[in-house]
């Protein structure tokens, strides 16, 4: 039985690595962008490396958010992301804010959310922050595979969400390594989506 499982796993890995099966699955899972004028652009957190360096994914998202601002789609940009437990001096939102200002976004057009640990916490706290200012329509910037779950919790928190993906992994993942990574992300996000549903978050 264990040998059968091993054969199955090896064959599955080869199929995922050598064929576009994960690209098709990714396309089905991802939410297509629907960029419209909104009250604010919300860029979700993706993590910091040590000494305040933004993770690749964090950088990709914030640049997509800055691009939307420069296109004039919203007058405000909300940058999310807390600190690492081993480095409380830097927060992701702060580091992103520095980058955004370097790229020409005025400080008064930036809001920071530095306390959330999860997507749900981001949805609850950012929606409170925005509704307090009478803002309801947002362009939500995150990874294409994360968007399904993020959109659901932000809508559940009372905001009208226009999806704005920061990548197109389903198309760009063509090497064996990238396809295996894409498959693992789809599995991970499916599990997270199921967990959020079971927990009643949306």
């Amino acid at each position: 039985m264990i040998r059968g499982l091993g054969i199955l796993i090896i064959i599955a890995c080869l199929i995922v690595a050598l064929t576009p099966v994960s690209n098709f699955a990714g396309k089905k899972f991802a939410i297509l962008p629907d960029k419209k004028p909104a009250d604010a652009i919300v860029v979700l957190g993706a993590g910091l490396m040590n000494a305040g360096s933004l993770q690749d994914e964090s950088l990709r998202r914030v640049i997509a958010g800055i691009d939307l601002y420069k296109q004039g789609l919203a007058p405000l940009i909300v940058l999310s992301g807390g600190a690492r437990r081993d480095d409380m001096q830097h927060t992701e939102a702060q580091q992103r804010s520095i980058l955004a200002q370097t790229m020409g976004i005025p400080a008064e057009a930036i809001l920071k959310e530095e306390t959330s640990n999860t997507t749900r916490e981001e949805a609850v706290r950012i929606s409170r922050l925005l509704m307090h200012r009478g803002l309801r329509k947002i362009l939500l910037v995150t990874e294409s595979l994360h968007l399904r779950r993020a959109k659901a919790v932000f809508e559940s928190a009372g905001l009208e969400v226009f999806p704005a993906t920061s990548d197109d992994y389903s198309v760009s993942a063509i090497s064996a390594k990238d396809r295996l990574w894409l498959a693992s992300r789809i599995i991970e996000e499916s599990a997270a989506l199921a967990y959020y549903r079971l927990a009643g978050y949306f």
Binding site: M1, I2, R3, G4, L5, G6, I7, I9, I10
Partner: peptide, 13 residues
């Protein structure tokens, strides 16, 4: 090869 598949199965478990 058979042992390798068994190992792969054990690893996944």
């Amino acid at each position: 090869i058979r042992a390798f598949f068994e190992y792969a199965g054990t690893f996944s478990l």
